[in-house]
Design a protein around this nucleic acid. Structure first.
Lengths: 165, 165
DNA sequence: TTGGAAAGTCAACAAGGCTGACATAAAATC
DNA sequence: GATTTTATGTCAGCCTTGTTGACTTTCCAA
């Protein structure tokens, strides 16, 4: 199945199953590296990846609502609520009743929340920066193109809504 | 914060914090897209990502040992054992006592295991192929370069040990 | 004023991580 | 030959983070 002949022209993509499998494996290993530093820091503070995701997206869009976050994170409100509750209790996140619609809660990072976000994201950015420098500028642009093409259209919208390029 | 001036020369990398954050977010969203199809198929069969990982690496290296798998997957033997046990019970994986060293168990996929592996990986390859075609050949090579640079050195070894390029 | 959306809560459960303790067989070493 | 180390498996229990279902409160809007 799916055995292509040799490429006739130049610039065409001939993707064997083995090449594609290798690409999948690269995603797996790279994602492990990508989350390793954050995981270590989070554990130190008694949190998990779920907390990191919440903190990241609240920092990205201060004042965002719970519903907004649910759409981006793709988990149930019960699951998100458990995480948000601990972050609020611990004083990392502030939840303000919506001004116009008082059912909504607008979420913000506190000083302490900003501090943790910075600790985590700067470690992650350092790893990313090192990888980008090693791979070179052209590679980085290709990296971004492929990742974007790999997203679900819905998530891609959320990705592009905040000045990506 | 961190607004860089315009690059003077060509080919240099100017990585603002915002660009790096965006790269991290792209990884998050792309990984979600990347695992979406496999997750759907696995759920249909009553399995999870952990089963997928085991099946993937047994297919990649037939006859691999439990210890080998532990090193690659980075989980505890108890965790892996739980997964392997169900796969063996369900007849997807076969465990043969080692020929030279009888303490070892050599792991293989059965016909049924191969079938599931193929079902999952072909969905994943289809998604990857589509993304690669959309992004173009140069992008793909950059994508691979960056991912490789992002891996932990230890995992990178495991990645390159199986004819990557 | 009433229906429904948004948000929160409680309870129960499952997958898949983890640690610690222990068992067995086989290999390796002393 | 006795001892130690290695490879694997297993039991018990804990944690995080996902799930569903049921129910309440708030409050906007038709």
């Amino acid at each position: 199945m799916a055995d292509a002949q040799d490429p006739p022209g130049q610039g065409l993509l001939f993707l064997t199953d083995e090449q594609l499998r290798k690409g999948a494996e690269a995603m797996f290993f790279a994602y492990r590296g990508f989350t390793a530093d954050p995981d270590r820091i989070l554990e130190k503070h008694g949190y998990g990846r779920a907390h990191h995701r919440a903190i990241h997206f609240i920092r990205r869009s201060p004042g965002t609502t719970v519903n907004n976050l649910l759409a981006i994170l793709g988990v149930t409100k019960q699951s998100l609520n458990r995480v948000l509750r601990t972050l609020i209790e611990d004083g990392l996140v502030e939840s303000r009743v919506g001004a116009r619609d008082k059912r909504e809660r607008n979420l913000f990072l506190t000083e302490a929340g900003m501090a943790l976000e910075h600790e985590i994201s700067s470690a992650q950015r350092a790893r990313l920066r090192a990888a980008f420098l090693e791979a070179g500028p052209d590679a980085v642009s290709g990296f971004r193109k492929v990742l974007e093409a790999m997203m679900d259209p819905e998530l891609r919208r959320h990705y592009k809504r905040t000045g990506g390029r």
